[in-house]
Design a protein around this nucleic acid. Structure first.
Lengths: 123, 123, 123, 123
DNA sequence: GTGGTCTAGACCACA
DNA sequence: GTGGTCTAGACCACA
């Protein structure tokens, strides 16, 4: 299930993208699986179909899913998809590292922050 | 000096905040130092005074700077300030770690990404 | 045999039309030959008979095939058919050339692109 | 100026993308130039701002333009942009060549079609 | 039913 | 004013 945070400044379509990528990363869904239809997911989450459409379109453009008109949307199975998923997953993290680096935070400080968080199972 | 990227999707006022925090982190400025006036900084960077004002207001709210009417703005000296600086600096990073963790990315994968980036001096 | 790509954004009925035209272009089928019945082709390809019907209707409209009630569908034999086949085959290509020309791409750039692709046996 | 064909099956946002790329290819606009605002272009063309927004978003994603909130949209100046423009420009043409190849049309037939069209200055 | 496109119109952050 | 997001709702081709 995808959990949306309407109060977040992160756009809903981005949260959707993240949610689907997360489901793939943790193995809840895999290549070839069909995704809920645009309308079904929209009504299930209580959001507008256009918003789901936007998320699906971006995922398709990245090669992570493919959509067939009149049939539905499916998770891609090829390598390219896995690579794209990994890239996006690490993308946000890398940006954060870059930002931290710009602020003069040392490699060690970052690693100890990670250790601390993983030790407490995050938060 | 603060370098702005007008093409970035990061708001200018956020870039300003980041810039001032960075200057403090790397020791270029320290507690008690005076900051340029809103107008001076705005004209120096060629941006709108409102934007500088917004950045200063947020920094003041966090306790990182303080303003004295008719005198100007100054970097705070107390511990609270240092903590706030560190918190903001690490804040975005921690969120990214949490997101990565949710996606099932291992601690090791994150650290190796950091190592790779610091080795190449970021990017 | 006609190979369908269900993931393609090109409609199935268009792929069918392309497939039949290709078979004629390469000489695998020729004027007078009978085509599989709508139902037979549909079941063989695992698609909806409506889709095959649509493809046949368009081919008939162009004069490339003709249907005889109770007998089936056949490839036309007259010149008009050959011309239509060529026209359809080159149609999309000519549009692309026109578009490229509008964009200021030179004749030479187009030809070198073709050479490159044919050298690598396309893609 | 960008000419739209509402009867075409090519989506309006794609026609917009093509139009802007064409203007860049022929040198009518160049790196650094500002584009009309989303709203201005929409009202000028008599279409919905969302449609222009979609075109701009895609162009930005390809690195061909960049948008600054509150400022406007601008043509990128870097090499990457030029490469993307060329790629998209030739992209449609290459697809057409591939399609023609699948249909068994020879390299020579394609080239003679090009020659014919360029001789008559297209159409 | 399914994805894709488009309009009309609102609201927000930013400059 | 400017880009960006989102909703509500319509219409289309396709299967």
């Amino acid at each position: 299930m995808i959990q949306l945070d309407y109060r977040s400044s992160v756009p809903i379509y981005d949260q959707l993208i993240n949610g689907i990528i997360r489901l793939k990363m943790v193995g809840a869904i895999k290549g070839g699986d069909s995704l809920p239809s645009v309308r079904a997911l929209a009504s299930q989450l209580g959001i507008n179909p256009n918003t789901v459409q936007k998320a699906y379109a971006i995922l398709e453009e990245k090669g992570i899913i493919y959509s067939v008109s009149g049939k539905g949307s499916f998770l891609s199975e090829d390598e390219k998809s896995d690579k794209a998923v990994m890239e996006i997953s690490l993308g946000g993290f890398k940006e954060a590292v870059e930002e931290a680096h710009k602020r003069g935070i040392s490699r060690e400080a970052l690693i100890s922050a990670i250790d601390e968080m993983y030790k407490e199972e995050i938060k």
